[in-house]
């Protein structure tokens, strides 16, 4: 299990995000982390649709090539949609970044172990799926470079932050789906 604090990592990922960063958090703790860093209409929280964060980001990145699209998700959510990594890599989207907060646990369901604590290596899987950049960050010394890759390096990029299994549900984002969709489109497109 990792040692990084997920809230601190996400706060750094979203520092000075501006209008050109579109964020797709996967369900569970990743949503709470993104909300704690500052709610924003350009964050499309997923309260369900497990496994959908990466494929949703593919559609968004194709539609908005001038904006950076950043997936922030957990290992459990990503493991449900691993095949989407192959499509994300194959499309070669230069504005797509995927970061996983890998705590080796299914946090929402009782902290059961995921396979990432039992031998599965998401960084290697991303590289194997075809990501030209797939970076593992295990301690504080690597965080700044991991954040830089997520925010700036031409995509598609993949960064795996090994975080601790500490949980914090103190920041819950809005969960009305139509509201989240409409405010996102209004902020990005100027219309609903």
């Amino acid at each position: 299990m990792g040692v990084l604090n997920r809230r601190e990592v996400v706060a750094k990922l979203l520092t000075d995000r501006g209008e050109d960063l579109l964020v797709v958090p996967g369900l569970g703790q990743s949503c709470y982390d993104c909300c704690a860093a500052g709610d924003d209409p350009r964050t499309f929280y997923l309260w369900g649709a497990m496994g959908g964060a990466v494929p949703l980001a593919i559609g968004l990145a194709v539609a908005q090539p001038e904006k950076r699209v950043l997936v922030i998700t957990g290992d459990g959510e990503l493991l449900m949609g691993l095949g989407s990594l192959t499509a994300a890599a194959a499309e070669g989207l230069p504005n797509l970044a995927i970061c996983v907060l890998d705590n080796e646990r299914y946090g929402e369901t009782g902290q059961q172990k995921t396979v990432t604590g039992r031998g599965a290596d998401l960084t290697a899987i991303a590289a194997g799926a075809g990501f030209p950049t797939a970076k593992l960050v295990t301690d504080e010394s690597g965080v700044a470079e991991g954040v830089r890759i997520c925010r700036e390096e031409p995509g598609p990029v993949f960064v795996n932050f090994k975080v601790s299994d500490a949980q914090d549900a103190s920041a819950l984002p809005p969960k009305d789906g139509a509201y989240l969709k409409n405010r996102f489109r209004e902020a990005v497109l100027g219309k609903i």
Binding site: F44, G52, P55, I58, L60, V62, S84, T86, A87, V188
Partner: peptide
């Protein structure tokens, strides 16, 4: 875009519409 499973397509359609 060629996908490996159909549910990814549902999510991708949502992303496309979010992006206009």
């Amino acid at each position: 875009v060629s996908l490996t499973t159909e549910e990814d397509g549902i999510a991708m359609m949502a992303g496309a519409w979010l992006g206009g």
